[in-house]
């Protein structure tokens, strides 16, 4: 099944590129709160791509079931960890760098 092989390679390669993009993101973004979003990439889509690609490699077996369990657990825990981190930083008094141009007007700018 060379076709499935190729698709799984595509998934794994995309995951690898997304991981590197997230790694660059935590150096490009200026403050802690915006870095949270860069880490969000590696936590969600990158992990999903890797695990789906590996699932395709293993086929229907106990290994793919365990990969699915890892997938589910990562997807339940990573938003919780990110939220806890952001909440702790805000309570700890770390000020975010906000965009001056829109700051304070956000409530008025309803979408059309």
């Amino acid at each position: 099944m060379i076709f499935i092989e190729l698709i799984s390679w595509l998934f794994i390669a995309t995951g690898a590129l997304l991981g590197i993009a997230g790694g660059i993101g935590i150096h490009r973004f200026p403050d802690f709160y915006s870095r949270l979003h860069a880490v969000g990439i590696t936590d969600t889509l990158c992990a999903a791509m890797f695990l789906i690609g590996l699932c395709l490699q293993t086929g229907v077996s106990i290994a793919s079931l365990k990969l699915l369990l890892i997938f589910i657990f990562l997807f339940f825990s990573s938003p919780t960890a990110t939220h806890a981190l952001a909440n702790a930083a805000l309570l700890g008094g770390l000020k975010p760098e906000l965009d001056e141009e829109y700051h304070g007007h956000c409530f008025d700018r309803r979408p059309d």
Partner: peptide, 13 residues
């Protein structure tokens, strides 16, 4: 390639 990419990401982090 995948393992190398993961290691690059880890080193950036």
């Amino acid at each position: 390639v995948a393992a190398f990419a993961i290691l690059v990401t880890i080193s950036l982090a």
